[in-house]
Every structure is written in C-alpha cells, then in structure tokens.
Computed example of a mutant assay.
Amino acid sequence: MDLQDYLTAIVFGTIIGVVARIVLPGRQSIGIIPTVLIGMGAAVAGTWAADRWELHSDNLFTVTGRTFDWAVVGVQVGIAVVGVAIAAVLAKTFTTDRDSD
C-alpha cells in the first residue's frame, strides 16, 4: 500500500463512519474521532469479510480513479453501524450522568 491508499482509507472510513451514524437511529454520544476510527476499521473488516465469503457484485462505481463494489460497501457500512452502536452503548455506560445530582 502506498500513501494514496492510506489517504483513501481515511477518507472512505470517515464517510462510512458518518453514514453508519446516519443509518443508526437515535443520538449517539460519541465524537468524530471514534466515528472515523470505527469507519476505518469497518472498511478494512468489510473488505476482508467480503473477500472471505466471496460477496461481490457486478455493480461498481468509480471515485477518483478507484473502483468500488456496492456489495463490499454494503458490508462495510453494516459493520460500521454495529461498531457505532457498540461504541454508543459503551459511551453511555461509562459516562456519568451529572444532571441527576
């Protein structure tokens, strides 16, 4: 992987994390950095899972010269939604409610 691949992963991971927060109902009390990290992890995990289970489609799209598969993106967003949900639950669990004092 070269520098451009890493930059693409960061940008794509950010988009996937934001999409996951939009898809997930309710308000999540996590910041932008965990959202981006979850999105980046989901991009890697989704790519691995799609390759592992041979989940590919003929529906492709191209962004700045790179081609992406809609099926793989769907798996990535699904993993990101689960990751954001887990992070939101953990954030709520470990955050103290100061209004109840």
Rank of each mutant, 00 (worst) to 15 (best):
L24K: 08
G78R: 03
D97F: 06
D101A: 14
F94I: 11
A80K: 00
Q4R: 12
T14D: 04
I86T: 09
V72D: 04
D69G: 10
A85K: 04
A87S: 06
A45H: 01
L60A: 13
T35W: 00
V81E: 01
F12C: 08
T35K: 00
V81Q: 01
V11S: 04
V77Y: 01
T67E: 15
G78H: 05
A85D: 03
H56T: 15
A50N: 09
V23F: 10
G41Y: 03
T95G: 05
F68Q: 12
A9D: 11
T96A: 11
S29V: 12
V18H: 01
V63T: 13
V72A: 07
G26Q: 06
I32P: 00
T62P: 07
G39H: 01
D51W: 08
S29T: 12
A87K: 00
A43N: 15
A42D: 08
V73L: 12
R52V: 12
A42K: 02
G65S: 11
P34E: 10
D69A: 10
V84K: 00
I38G: 00
D51S: 15
R27G: 10
M40P: 00
A9G: 06
D51M: 13
I15G: 03
A87G: 05
G65F: 08
T93K: 13
V72W: 03
A85G: 10
G65W: 07
F61T: 14
M1P: 07
G41V: 07
A20D: 04
L60H: 12
A91G: 04
T95L: 09
P34I: 01
T95I: 05
W53D: 10
V23I: 15
L7Y: 07
H56Q: 14
T93S: 10
A43K: 06
G41P: 02
T8D: 11
M1D: 06
G65D: 09
V36Y: 02
I15R: 02
M40G: 11
A88M: 03
F94H: 10
P34R: 00
A85T: 02
S100T: 15
N59M: 14
T96R: 14
M1T: 06
A42Q: 05
I79E: 01
G78P: 08
P25Y: 07
W53A: 12
A45D: 07
G31F: 03
I32Y: 09
T96D: 12
D69L: 10
I15Y: 00
A87M: 04
F94N: 09
L55D: 08
V18E: 09
E54L: 13
M1L: 07
D51K: 15
S57M: 05
A87D: 09
T95N: 10
G39I: 03
